[in-house]
Design a protein around this nucleic acid. Structure first.
Length: 627
DNA sequence: TTCTACAAAC
């Protein structure tokens, strides 16, 4: 145990001022109490009679208790004066404190003044730059470290590898991997976990997996990282298998690990798994942290149960802005705009300040529920009333909002008058709107801007080609296709996941892979006929191919995407109810609808398409709130 | 005495 006196006073003595950099700062006393009451510091030293502290242990104990830069600087001054800064352990601790308070300038000045440095000094400085986002300085310092003749160690390497992860610099990451191997550090759990994480964030799951498999000992963090890696790289099912394996191996999970498991469920949209994971969390009595709770809200929302999400939300004692935004977004992509708006106002009444993402969520909710005026009102006041400057993401929501409502001129006007930089999402929203309303001229303008920004994205070409096709401009369709072929671009088909009786099925356009494919298509045909009998006439204009009517019909029935289009459903925009017949309305895009018609069973089917959800029940003809 | 993993929109 440390023993320290009630109060220490600094004697400003020039003879101690050699090592540190703040020797010119007037000396002040620091007491253990004054650290708890930072504003009282100065009063306490006036009538003090104690001699200065010369015990390094006191500072090692006191420094971590500093709550702000001001206090650290005071101790720095004391150490300068009493000469303890020459004690490398104390000096390193001081350096560390500066970096944890993001005082990187002070830290670096101190570091440069060190007459000697050990590997901890280097790693704290490298880590300081890394945490502060000064990647260039971080690498530069690491290079100096290696040049100084010291061996890089298991403390420094995770910092630089993490920077590679944050900057997605795979090349540099591989370089550090070599350094790791050269110094035989590959089995250090910290180094290995960071490398796995780096490879995963750089989307090379194979390398992450290889490393993971070769590890002799895997700690909880390594497992956690690997679960996150699989989710990140699109194999959420593999992530959940890892969770099972962890349980088999008797590893005790913590709440961070659970957040990753919950995210995997969210990505997969597997309600059955979500419930199991929720049970596990309840059984093991995890403390419901804000992060875990928020992740669970997102999970339930993405698994189709916005009401379960709301239950979690209601039960959470502490909610932050992320929690509120997640719940608002959940209502948004379930087409429950009114509830999203109600929640937004409830948030305001609790005194929680919305941030930029909250506004994206609420505007998204408005646009997907056709609440044009609400959305416009919100965007017009967000800056003055809530101090959130509209970004291109917010404008994109508004363009979407106006575009769906057919107010294309206003959307264009908004784009032309905005001062923020335009991105592909913005033009994409406009192009999508042009598609709904068949506005060829504006579509060309949007497509031009879009292709300038992203010439390699096949989706943009397809969208433009579809618009030309609808207008019957087959020559233009051919030209766009040629352009694609010329650039060797191919559209990757979209996938849809559905969960029926706890089992996940994956579909793509015109898919015949399902063992019951024959029955599914029979049902599909049957439903199509019913729709036509109910008075619906397929709009073959949507079909891209320049072929005769009969062939078009056949394409419609074998190609699910085209079929959906023919039923008046649009490919990209969804959420706004589209009238099919007098009695039927649908919210959802083509895939959604197709999955509905292709799955005929007497049970509730939840369909998820790119984070949007639709609940179908055979017979009830219900889709979200809109049927 | 320093190191790794966690949530929201598009």
């Amino acid at each position: 145990m440390f023993k320290f006196k009630h109060q220490y006073l600094l004697l400003a003595s020039p003879k101690f001022g050699r090592v540190g950099l703040f020797s010119s700062i007037p000396a002040k006393a620091v007491t253990t109490e004054s650290l708890n009451h930072p504003n009282d510091c100065n009063q306490e030293l006036s009538n003090s009679h104690f001699s200065p502290a010369t015990d390094p242990s006191f500072y090692l104990f006191t420094l971590p208790k500093c709550k702000n830069i001001h206090q650290i600087k005071q101790i720095h001054t004391q150490l300068t004066v009493n000469g303890l800064l020459r004690n490398l352990i104390v000096a390193n601790k001081l350096l560390y404190m500066y970096t944890t308070h993001r005082a990187i300038t002070e830290a670096h000045a101190l570091f440069c003044g060190f007459s000697e440095k050990n590997s901890m000094s280097w790693s704290v400085m490298v880590g300081g730059f890394a945490k502060n986002g000064d990647f260039v300085d971080c690498f530069r310092t690491f290079r100096e470290y290696m040049r100084s003749g010291d061996r890089p160690d298991n403390y420094t390497l995770p910092f630089v590898i993490r920077v590679c992860r944050d900057t997605m610099d795979l090349q540099m990451g591989r370089l550090f991997h070599h350094v790791v191997c050269k110094y035989g550090l590959q089995s250090d759990p910290f180094v290995a976990a960071t490398l796995v994480d780096m490879y995963a964030k750089c989307k090379v799951l194979k390398d992450a997996q290889k490393l993971f498999d070769r590890m002799l000992e895997r700690d909880l963090v390594t497992w956690t990282v690997m679960i996150g890696a699989h989710t990140e790289c699109g194999s959420a099912d593999a992530a959940l298998l890892l969770f099972d394996r962890m349980q088999e191996e008797g590893i005790v999970l913590d709440s961070v690990a659970m957040v990753n498991v919950v995210n995997a469920c969210a990505k997969l949209g597997a309600m059955h798994k979500a419930r199991l994971v929720h049970d596990y969390i309840s059984r093991k009595q995890f403390s419901m942290s804000v992060v875990l709770g928020t992740a669970m809200i997102d999970m339930y929302a993405k698994c189709g149960s916005v009401d379960s999400a709301r239950e979690i939300f209601n039960r959470m004692g502490i909610k932050n802005v992320v929690t509120w935004s997640a719940m608002i977004a959940a209502y948004g992509y379930h087409g429950r705009g009114r509830e999203a708006l109600e929640l937004f106002f409830m948030m305001l009444t609790t005194g929680m300040a919305p941030n930029s993402i909250t506004f994206v969520s609420i505007l998204y909710a408005c646009s997907h529920s056709g609440m044009v005026e609400d959305g416009l009102r919100l965007v017009s006041v967000m800056q003055q009333e809530y101090g959130v400057r509209p970004s291109v993401k917010h404008f994109t929501c508004v363009v979407d909002l106006l575009g769906r409502a057919g107010r294309l001129d206003e959307a264009l006007n908004l784009i032309e008058n905005m001062t923020v930089e335009k991105d592909e999402g913005l033009w994409g929203a406009l192009l999508g709107a042009c598609r709904i309303h068949g506005h060829v001229e504006l579509a060309e303008k949007a497509a031009r801007s879009l292709l300038e920004l992203q010439p390699e994205n096949p989706g943009h070409y397809v969208l433009l080609a579809n618009i030309y096709a609808r207008a019957g401009k087959w020559k233009n369709v051919a030209r766009v296709r040629e352009l694609m072929t010329h650039q060797r671009l191919k559209k990757v088909p979209g996938w849809t996941w559905i969960e029926v009786d706890n089992k996940i099925h994956q579909f793509s356009v015109g898919d015949h892979a399902h063992p019951q494919s024959k029955e599914i298509y029979e049902n599909l045909n049957c439903l199509c006929n019913k729709l036509e009998l109910a008075g619906y006439v397929p709009d073959t204009n949507y079909v891209l191919h320049d072929v005769d009517e009969e062939l078009k019909r056949r394409i419609l029935y074998t190609h699910s995407e085209k079929l959906a289009i023919a039923f008046g459903l649009t490919v990209t925009p969804e959420g706004t109810p589209l009238r099919i017949t007098k009695n039927l309305r649908v919210c959802g895009d083509c895939h959604t609808f197709i999955k509905f018609v292709s799955l005929v069973a007497n049970r509730l089917i939840i369909v998820r398409d790119a984070n949007r959800f639709h609940h179908f029940k055979e017979g009830a003809c219900s889709c979200g709130d809109y049927w």
